[in-house]
Amino acid sequence: MDKLSIAVVGAGKLGRLIIHRLLTHVDPASIHLCRKDPNRLGELAQEFPGCRVHTNAQAAVDRSGVAILAVKPPDLGPLAAMLGFNGQAVLSLITGKSFGTLISTLGTTNLVRASTSILLETGSAQTTWMAHPQVETHSLSVCLRIMKEWGELTEAQTEHDLAVTIVSSGALPGILATDLLDYVYALQALGEQNAEQKTLRTLKVLCEQCLEKNCSLESKVSQVKTPGGITIAATDVLEQANHQTTIAEALQASLSRVYELDG
């Protein structure tokens, strides 16, 4: 990305992944970083050599054309109190913070909201974005250029669509990993020595078959649920335990938290 200066505000898990991805195609000298704790600036300089490290967010933003906000939702207020924008594009990945909240706290409408996942580090994330109606055309173009490097892009039509995507893209990898880990523990209890590797390989094959053959998970389930067989013996137990209802309640709880974070 020629002549594009980018400030990344937030050096947590997501912020670091974004920086790592930027470094695959952006000159380090064009990336401006900062930390809430000035005593830990040396860590950033050591982890991301060549990037410009600043003692505060304003200094980083002032030297950039686009500011990527990757802070935790509770940190938006304190950040906004010490931060001003002068035409910079703002790409917000702050979970749950609506355009209304961002405008009232940041004082700009030159905004793009996005939801992505940890897969952005390898360029394989599914990122959903939405631009504020008053965003500048050039600013939107710059934000899209950045996000295209993260993987596949989808434009959300409403902020509710974006909230749902925050769950399906942002939270789902962790939710699925948690569920899979329960299967691993159960297999280990049965005596399976390579439970984790077998579970991951099975999942990989299942996903590849569905994606490559363009078949649905429902059709795959129908293929393996032989009456009187070992698979249906297990799925019957899951159905009796209302497993599907539990999953639905878990995802609804995640979506509710997205809206709570806008408070």
Score class of each variant (00 low, 15 high):
residue 209 Q to P: 00
residue 211 L to Q: 14
residue 211 L to V: 08
residue 212 E to R: 05
residue 212 E to Q: 09
residue 213 K to G: 07
residue 213 K to N: 13
residue 214 N to V: 03
residue 214 N to Y: 07
residue 215 C to M: 12
residue 215 C to I: 02
residue 215 C to G: 01
residue 216 S to G: 04
residue 216 S to M: 04
residue 216 S to R: 06
residue 217 L to C: 04
residue 217 L to V: 12
residue 217 L to D: 01
residue 219 S to K: 08
residue 220 K to M: 14
residue 220 K to I: 12
residue 221 V to N: 06
residue 221 V to Y: 04
residue 221 V to G: 01
residue 222 S to H: 07
residue 222 S to M: 12
residue 222 S to L: 11
residue 223 Q to N: 06
residue 223 Q to H: 00
residue 223 Q to F: 01
residue 224 V to A: 06
residue 226 T to Q: 10
residue 227 P to E: 10
residue 227 P to L: 05
residue 228 G to N: 08
residue 228 G to L: 04
residue 228 G to R: 04
residue 229 G to F: 03
residue 230 I to H: 03
residue 230 I to Y: 07
residue 230 I to N: 11
residue 232 I to N: 11
residue 232 I to V: 15
residue 234 A to T: 04
residue 236 D to T: 13
residue 236 D to G: 08
residue 236 D to H: 07
residue 236 D to F: 01
residue 236 D to E: 15
residue 238 L to V: 09
residue 239 E to K: 14
residue 239 E to R: 14
residue 239 E to L: 14
residue 240 Q to E: 12
residue 241 A to S: 13
residue 241 A to R: 11
residue 242 N to E: 15
residue 242 N to Q: 13
residue 243 H to M: 05
residue 244 Q to Y: 10
residue 244 Q to G: 00
residue 245 T to N: 15
residue 245 T to V: 05
residue 245 T to L: 13
residue 245 T to C: 10
residue 246 T to W: 10
residue 247 I to L: 15
residue 249 E to A: 15
residue 249 E to Q: 14
residue 249 E to K: 14
residue 250 A to N: 05
residue 251 L to F: 09
